[in-house]
Amino acid sequence: MWQLTSIELYKIFRRPRTYISFAAITALIGAVQLGLKVDGQSYVDFMIGSISSLEIEGNILNGYLICYIILQMLLVQVPLLVTLISADMISGEANMGTLRLVLTKPFSRTQWLLSKFFAASIYTLLLLTWMACMALFGSMLIFGTDDMMLLKSSYIVILDDTDVFWRYVGAFGFAAVSMVAVAALGFLLSIFSENSIGPIVTTMSIIVFLTVLSTMNIPFYNYIRPYLFVTHMNNWKEFFDVQVNAENQSLTGTIQNSSRIINSIIVLLLHIVAFVGAAVVIFKKKDITT
């Protein structure tokens, strides 16, 4: 199994397109960091302008907040970069014509498919690790660390600077699960197509469509929202909210809605299992006619 997975990784990392994603992330994060380094104050003014009745002191625009801003922006784009590879995993082979040569080799289709999915997942994880390095460690280096102030939609959270890093570890872990779910969807769609554009566009369309549905505050959509996996993808933010005691003091090391995170992780994992399971079942019976 690992043998097959390593072959797939070898193929992924021998292709120039793989590195486009890493370059894109580097460029995007660099651009955000440069922008905030040059003119961060106006961003902060804009951000705290809405809470004019409070006096805010301290280094608000520190590495922790910047990583949050970047994550918030990029976790919308990263699915595209993940899809670029995962939705190409099978369809790309069909398109190149290598699928029929590969599948005449003596190994089981299920194993091959799973190893391909693992390879796509490893690529996804590497992409996120790279993102974490750039967005978190990069920002921590450039902007330093301090308490992290977050404006939620109706309240403000201040996290002690010693209480932030582990939350990022959790958030990136969560993001990894949600991105693997995206990869799984792209992967499933890639078995139906003989070119990679179709599944890439379809995967992105589904994600954009569901995201729009899940953000529209219309009662009808509120019923279906909990069942859409994209709704759960945003819940990495739950790591950045603390519980408070009766005196409204935030309790270091706590998470306000840990059950929401666990619930989302379960939903996302179920989606991954369902997408990959469906891919295996369908692909095992699939006639290779390309």
């Binding site: 290598t98 040569l101 005449t104």
Partner: peptide, 13 residues
């Protein structure tokens, strides 16, 4: 069995 079916497509890169 070893086979070449239709065009011998391999990894071009």
């Amino acid at each position: 069995m070893g086979a070449v079916i239709e065009k011998p497509d391999v990894y071009k890169y």
